[in-house]
Design a protein around this nucleic acid. Sequence first.
DNA 1: GCAGCCTTGTTTTTT
DNA 2: ACAAGGCTGC
Length: 851
Amino acid sequence: MTADNGDAILGDLTLAQRAAVTHVDGPLLVLAGAGSGKTRTITRRMAYLAAQGIAPMNILAVTFTNKAAAEMRHRTLALLAGLSLRHGGAPTVSTFHSLCARLLREFSSAIGLPAAFGILDTADQLKLIKQALEKIGLSPENFAPARVLDKISGAKNRLQRVDAFAAAAAGYFDTSVARVYRVYEELLGASQAVDFDDLLLKTALLLRDNAEVRNQLQGRFRYILIDEYQDTNHAQFVIAHMLAMEHENICATGDPDQSIYAWRGANLSNILEFEKFFPRAKVVLLEQNYRSTKTILQAASSLISHNRQRKHKDLWTENTIGSKVIHICSADEKQEAREIVRRLRDWHEREGISWDKMAVFYRVNAISRVLEEALMEAGLPYQIVRGTEFYARKEVKDVLAYLKLLVNPDDTLSFQRVINVPARGLGGTSVSRLADYAAHAGISLPAACRRAEEVPGLTKRAVEAFQQFAALIDSLRLLAIPPACASHADRLPPGSPEADRGAIGTNEFDPLYDPALATEATACTELSNFSADADENSPPGPASHRDATDQSVSPHAGEGSGGSRRFPPVAAIMEEVIHRAGFIRESKTRTMDEESLQRQSNIQELINVATEYDLSARHAQDGRQNPSGSLSDYLTQVALVSDVDRLGEKSGAVTLMTLHAAKGLEFPVVAIVAMEEGILPHERAIGFQGRPQDVEEERRLCFVGMTRAMQQLILSHSCYRMIMGRSEGRVASRFLKEIPDECVVRIDLLAQERLAGSPGYRDETIDQARPLRTKPASYRDSARRSIAAAEPASAPARFRKGSLVRHQKFGVGRIAELTPVGEKTRVVVEFQSAGRRSLFLEHARLEPVDG
DNA sequence: GCAGCCTTGTTTTTT
DNA sequence: ACAAGGCTGC
C-alpha cells in the first residue's frame, strides 16, 4: 500500500476505527455504539483489504436492508476507484436474503430446487397456511393462521424442518402446527416456491451438508463482513459460520443495545458470545459518537442504562451540548400531531432546516394516519416509509402474479389469484372443479387448466375460458422468455412445449454468472418486433422502455462482462401483460373515480420501477452484483424489497416511519410520538404474557429511535388516543421517566390551554427550550383544576361505580368501572348514546348527575 | 357468478 | 376507523 492510499483510507479515522480497519486476517468483532461511524469503518476496511492485495471479488459484505447494501457498495466502489483499486472485481454487498436467493438459484440443482423458484410474501404465506388448515380440517378460528405461521417461521429460523419439529412438538397446538407445517411444505413444493425463511434455511443447510459447495463458496468469499450482527438469527449465524469456518476471516459489527428483532428469531448471544465461537477474535469498541448532541446522547444513555441484561458501554461525544429534549404532553392524538407539525414548520421557517432532515417515528404503523392528516392539512411535504404497501396493492399484485406465472408455470397461488382477474367468468365453482381434477391427476392447477376439456362437470363456457387463459399465458410466455434467450433461470420446466428448444440441460453454474452464455444478445431480435407492437397500442408512457429495448440488439449487449442484456425488458413484458390480459379495458371504463385513477397510476408506477430495473441491468458493471435483466431476477428483487429500500434520501419531505425501520438512519430533527404505556412499550411486552426481556427490547427500540437524532429530539404522548375506533385514556411511557430531568423541557399542552384560557396560546419554548425545574403543572394539579368545582379533596368520592355523570361531549352515562392508574384514575362510563368509553377522571371533566 | 352489504377482525415490529 | 372477507339476493 502506498502512503497516499494509507492516508486516504486511514487519515481521518480514530485509533479505534483504525484498529478495526487494519485488522486483516482472523476474526474481528466491532462493537459499534450508535452513531460511532460504523459504516465508514466498514467501507474503509474493505478498501484497506483491497489495498493489501485482496481481490475485492473475494470480499462479501452482508447488511440488513437493500438500501444499506446499495449505499455501502456505492461508497466502497467510490473509495476503490479513488485509490485505483478497481481491478479484481467488486465486492459482493448484499442482504442475507438476497445473497441466499442468489446462491439458491446458482446451486439449485444441488438441492433439487427448481431454478425458477418463486418467493412468497407474507400475504401469500398466510393464504397457503389457510389452504393447509382447510386441507387437514382445522379451523382458522382455533388456529390463527398468523400464529401458526409464526411457529413455522420460528422453526425454520432454528433450522428445524418438519420431521424435527414434529418430533419435538408437545401438546395439541404444536402437534397440530406440525401437521400444518407438513402440508404447507407440500403446497410450497407444488408451487415451486420458497418463503422468506426458506431462503435462509435452505442456504444454511446447503452449506452445512454439501462440502463441495461450501468449499467453493469459502474460496469465493474469503473475507466476510456482517453488519447488524446483533439482529442475526440462528440460520444466519450458521450461514456466516459455514462460510467463515475455513479462513475465519469474519468481521462482525453491531451493537447489543440496538437489538430489536428478537421477536423474529434474532439471537443476541450470536454477538454476545462471538468470542466463544471465535476464541482468536480481536474485539474493537467504538464508543465515540459523532452524530448527536451531548444532551441527546445523555438522554439515550440514561434510558438504556435501565436495561439489566446489558453489557455496560459508555458512549461519549465531542459534539455540543445542544438544546434540550422536548417532551410534549397533549390532550389527544390530533393535538399531538398538530403540535409536532407546528414545531417542524417552525424549525423549517426559522432555522431553514429542510424537510428531509426531519423524521417522525412511531411504534406501530397505525399511528401514522393522524400524522399524515396533520401534515396534509398543513401542506407540508412528507413521505411515508411503507414501501411494501405499494407491492401489496391488489392491482400491483395482480400484474406481478401474471409475471410469476410466466416464469413459473406451476405457480398455483398466482394462478388462483389471476384466473378471474380481470373477470372472465371463472368463479369458485369452476376453479374448484379444476382443482379436484388437478388433485386427481396429480398435476398442478395451471397444468390442469391446459387440459380443461378433460375436466368433468365444467360448463362449455368455463372450458373455453380456461383454455383461453392457458393460451394467453403461453403466448405471453413466448414473448417474455423467447426460447432462444431462455437461460435456466427463466427456463420452462420439462414438459412444456417450448422447454425442449431453449433448454441447456442441467446446470452446475448459473449461466447468469457465465460470460460465455452472455453473448446471445442477438437471439432476442423477436423482442424488438414485440416491443414495436407494444408501442403502438401502449397507453401513456410508451417511450419508457424504448431505450431499454434498443439495448437488446445494441453492440454493447454481448460484451460479456456480465452487463449484457439477453432478456426482453421487463417493462415491455409488463405492458404487454397489462394489455393482453385486459387490464387496460378494465380501466378504460368511463367511471373514472378516484380509486380507478389511483389504480392506474399504481400500474404506471410499477412500469416505471420495472424500467429502472431494466436500465440498471443494462448498466450493470458486475454480473454478480447487479440484476441480470431477467424477469426471474426482477421478481426476486421485488419480493425482497423492504420498506426502507424505497425511502428517498433527497426527497425534500418529512419522513414518517416505524422505529424498526429507523435503524441505521439519522436525521437532524427527530420526533417520537405516542410514547405511552401499551404502545411504547407495547402492550405485548407489558401485558399478560409479556416478559421482562420483552420490555428491554422495547427500551432498546426507544433507544434506537432517540439515537437517530442529531440536533433536536421531541418525545410526545397524549392523554387520550383513538385506538381501534375507541377513545382511550393513556398513561405516559415509563421510558419518559427514565430520562434525566435536566435533559428535558416539558410542555404540557393541557395545562397551557387552561392557564392561558385559550387554545391558541403560544409558548416561548418553541425557540428557547429551557429546562423546567419544577414539573410544570403535574397531573395531580391539572386534575384538581379540571374537577375543581367538585371539592378537590374528596372528589373521587363523588364518582363511584354506578354513579350517573354528565360529559361535555358524550352526554349522560353511568360509571361502570373505576381503576387507579398511577396518579390518575381510569373510569369506564357507559354513556346512553355514545356507548362505552374509557376516560380519565382527572381530565374528562365529568359532572355528577343527581338521581 | 357476481355485486353489494354486513360482519369481522385488526394493531406490533419485517426480510 | 377501516379493510377485508363472507353472505345474501339477484
